[in-house]
Design a protein around this nucleic acid. Structure first.
Lengths: 228, 228
DNA sequence: ACCTGAACACCGTTCAAGT
DNA sequence: ACCTGAACACCGTTCAAGT
C-alpha cells in the first residue's frame, strides 16, 4: 500500500522537539497516569527510541518539570479589569478545572521543587490582582497561602475519593455498608446527604472557595477601615 | 566472636510480621522518600529477601495502603470534652504535624483510593465532634470538605516550596534574583515580607486555619440563629 | 508455614557507534 | 546534529523449589 520503507505513521515525522515530547508525556499521563510516564513509554508514543529523548530533555526529572509548566500555562490568569474577588475566584476555578482534567497535576506540583517560568508568571499575575484590590503585601501573602492550599487540597481530596465524579454514589454507600453501631455519624452522613440525593462532591468546591473569599474580604476590610 | 552461622544481626529476628514490614517501609520512606520504597529495599531493611514480604503483604500496593493507615493512626482525634472549635483545631494541627514529619504523607493519601480502617475511624471522630458542636449534617459535610482541603493543600504547598523549613530564605531570594521589571509584585513580596524578616511560611498555617474556622463559625451561627 | 533463587518483563541512564 | 543498540543497575511479581 505505502512505499516500502514506510513502517512509521504515514504523517511525515515533524522531527523531535522538546514541545512534542512534553505533549506526548502529557498524553501518556492522561491515558495511563503519571505512573505510566517512562522515557521508554514516551518514546514509543512518538515512534522513537527512549534514548532519543535525551537529546531534547536532560532526563526524566527535567521532563516532569516541563510537564508541570505545561500544566500551569493553561491556568487562566485573573483579568486586569475586574475586581480582585472576581479575578481571583475565576483563576481558582480555572486552576481546579485544569487539575481535574489532568489528575496527575497535584502529584507533579508536589514532586517538583523549582518553579518554572510559567508558574512564576502565574504567581505574579495573582499577586498583582490582589495588589490592585488593595491588599497590603502581608495580607496578600496570607491570601495567596490560604487560596492555593485550599484549591490544591480540594483537588487532592476530590481525587482520593473512593467514588468517580459521575459514578453512582448509592452503590458505593451500600457496598461500604458502614456498621451504624461502629460509625454512627458516618452512617448518618451517608444516609442523609448521599443516598438518593445525587450528591456531587464537586459542589463543595464553590462553597469552600466562597467561605475563604468571605474570610479574606473581612480581613481586608479590617486592614483598611477607611475604604467605604 | 559469634557462632559460625551468625551472619544476620545479633538480635534474634523476631520473625517477619505485617507490622514490622510496614514500619520498615515507613523508615525507608522517611530516610529516602516514597520513591525509595521498593519491595527489594524494604526487604533489605529487614535483612530478608524481597520475596518474603509477599507472605505477609499482598503486594506493593497493599503495602502502600497499609502505610497510609499507619500514618492516620498517629493523628490526634478531637477530644470528646472540648468545644468543636478547639477539638477540630487540635486535630488539624496534629494532621499537619504528622504530614510534616513524614513528607511522603500527602503523596500516599493522594495515591490511595480505598480508605483503611484507621482513616474511617478518624473521619468518624471528626464528624462526631462537629455533630456535638451543633453542626447540621449538611454543614458538617461542608466543614469537613473545606478543612481537609485546606490542611492537605497547605502541607502540599509547604513541601513544594523551594526553600527548606529552617533554611536561609535570604539566600534563595538573592539566588532567584527575580527581575523587578518582569515580576514587580513578586520582587516587592520578596523584599517586604521575606528578606531580613526571618519569614517562616509555617506561620501561615494557623492564619489560614483560623480564617476557615471563623468562616465555619459564621455559617454555623447563621444556620442555627436561636443558639445564644 | 515461611523463606528463597532464578526468571520475566519492565525501569532510567550511559556510552560508543552509526548516519 | 540527531538517533540508536547494547549494556548496567535497578524495578514488581511469579513460580518452583527448598526447609
Amino acid at each position: 500500500m505505502a512505499s516500502t520503507a514506510d513502517r512509521r505513521p504515514a504523517v511525515a515525522r515533524p522531527g523531535l522537539t522538546r514541545e512534542r515530547i512534553v505533549e506526548a508525556a502529557a498524553a501518556v499521563a492522561d491515558r495511563e497516569g503519571l505512573h505510566g510516564v517512562s522515557m521508554r513509554r514516551v518514546g514509543r508514543e512518538l515512534g522513537v527510541e527512549a534514548m532519543s529523548l535525551y537529546h531534547h530533555v536532560a532526563g526524566k526529572d527535567a521532563l516532569l518539570d516541563a510537564l508541570g509548566d505545561w500544566l500551569m500555562v493553561q491556568v487562566e490568569r485573573p483579568s486586569a479589569d475586574a475586581g480582585w474577588r472576581v479575578g481571583i475566584r475565576a483563576r481558582c476555578v480555572s486552576l481546579r478545572a485544569v487539575m481535574r482534567e489532568h489528575p496527575w497535576g497535584p502529584a507533579i506540583v508536589e514532586s517538583r521543587r523549582a518553579p518554572g517560568m510559567a508558574l512564576l508568571g502565574h504567581l505574579e499575575s495573582v499577586l498583582d490582582c490582589l495588589h490592585r484590590g488593595g491588599f497590603p503585601v502581608q495580607l496578600a501573602a496570607h491570601a495567596f497561602s490560604v487560596l492555593d492550599a485550599y484549591v490544591y487540597g480540594f483537588v487532592l481530596t476530590e481525587q482520593s475519593l473512593p467514588f468517580e465524579p459521575g459514578g453512582d454514589v448509592d452503590d458505593l454507600a451500600a457496598e461500604m455498608a458502614l456498621p451504624a453501631d461502629v460509625f454512627p455519624r458516618m452512617a448518618a452522613f451517608v444516609e442523609q446527604v448521599i443516598v438518593g440525593r445525587s450528591y456531587d462532591y464537586g459542589d463543595e468546591f464553590a462553597y469552600g472557595l466562597d467561605l475563604v473569599l468571605d474570610g479574606l474580604d473581612a480581613r481586608l476590610a479590617a486592614a483598611s477601615p477607611d475604604s467605604r
